[in-house]
């Protein structure tokens, strides 16, 4: 058993949230699909919250010989944290994340894994897609907004079936709702990301309704990603631009009011214009100040937050007699 554990090649991380299918059946499905690849695998099931019955059925499966690792979190932390927690236990050199419910036809997993020949991350793209016209429009709108904001073209970020090299998971840092933007973040880290069309599972249907709150959350998500992707290193460009715009408008209006009052004797009372302009000026100033604070944070912590990723350092062994600073022979040593 231990020997087998040591040579695991593929780790599948399955976060189980509120929306989950019959896990025993699902794991058997996934297991069968992964076994077809002919490489030793394991299933890391992360229970994101308390699901005692799921845990019980999985333990039974475990006793039946299925290579399952169960990670039970004490409460629901959200999918991002669940993925990270699952990865801590994963031992494979390839990591596959799979949804805790039926989303893709499980035999399609091999497609994702095989796509890793040329790419670092392969994410699923469910096609043909079931669901109403309205859903398709909504989805299209979301991805178009994302593309417009970040310049990255993806069409199914909702698909949580992904395959990746271990390194991707080691370097990426997910928190909050960022698991949704896994592909975007991975691309930002310089990994090659490809979308692979997979067949959608016939049982992939979301029963709940999207409430207004969900839409608001998605919109905020996009804003977060925009900020993370574009401006974390230059907060002043982000806040400063908005601040200067608002403050500038405010200043102009203020000037106009002053001229009108002093030069032409137009009364100020009874008009809220002065209040509006001062609010604008103040808002602009404060945004600018926030941008400066951001710059200050980055400047004083620049050595901790590195904004580049080194893929490899290449140096060949010293064969002649004049090595200047010859470290040990390193060919493809990784550094971060």
């Amino acid at each position: 058993m231990t020997e087998r554990k040591n040579c695991i090649e593929i780790s599948a991380i399955i976060p189980v949230g509120v929306r989950h299918a019959d896990m025993a059946a699902l794991c058997r499905d996934y297991g069968a699909a992964l076994a077809q690849l002919g490489r030793p695998y394991e299933l890391v099931v992360v229970l994101d919250g308390r699901y005692p019955h799921v845990s019980a059925t999985l333990e039974e499966l475990q006793r039946g010989g299925e290579p399952i690792v169960i990670v039970a979190l004490t409460r629901g932390f959200g999918e991002s944290t669940a993925l990270m927690a699952g990865f801590e236990r994963a031992r494979g050199s390839l990591v596959v994340t799979l949804p805790g419910y039926y989303q893709i036809v499980s035999s399609e997993i091999s497609k994702l894994v095989n796509a890793l020949g040329t790419a670092d991350v392969a994410i699923g793209l469910r096609w043909p897609r079931a669901g109403s016209r309205f859903e398709a429009v909504r989805r299209g709108g979301f991805h178009r907004a994302l593309r417009w904001m970040t310049g990255l073209k993806f069409s199914d970020l909702g698909c949580t079936a992904r395959a990746m090299r271990r390194r991707v998971m080691e370097e990426i840092f997910l928190y909050g709702d960022q698991h949704r933007f896994f592909a975007v973040l991975a691309q930002r880290l310089g990994f090659r990301v490809v979308e692979v069309t997979v067949r959608q599972s016939p049982r992939d249907r979301f029963e709940g309704r999207y409430r207004l709150r969900d839409y608001a959350h998605r919109a905020l998500d996009i804003l977060t990603v925009l900020f993370v992707v574009r401006f974390t290193k230059k907060p002043l460009r982000f806040f400063g631009m908005i601040g200067m715009l608002l403050g500038g408008i405010g200043m102009l209006l203020l000037l106009y009011l002053v001229v009108a009052r002093l030069g032409f004797g137009e009364p100020l009372a009874g008009r809220p214009a002065l209040l509006l302009t001062s609010l604008l000026v103040v808002l602009g100033l404060q945004l600018f100040a926030i941008g400066l604070l951001g710059e200050l944070i980055i400047f004083t912590h620049a050595r901790d937050i590195k904004d580049y990723q080194v893929e490899s350092v290449i140096q060949f062994a010293a064969d002649s007699a004049k090595p200047a600073a010859a470290d040990a022979a390193q060919d493809h040593v990784t550094a971060t």
């Binding site: 880290l189 290449i314 060949f316 090595p323």
Partner: peptide
């Protein structure tokens, strides 16, 4: 070049990060 000269180190970025990042690395 590096193959014949051990004094040459190559630091390879995974994507284009710009000159400052290259300098820092």
């Amino acid at each position: 070049l590096a193959r014949s000269d051990s004094r040459l180190h190559i630091v390879k970025f995974r994507r284009n990060y710009g000159q400052t990042a290259a300098m820092a690395a």
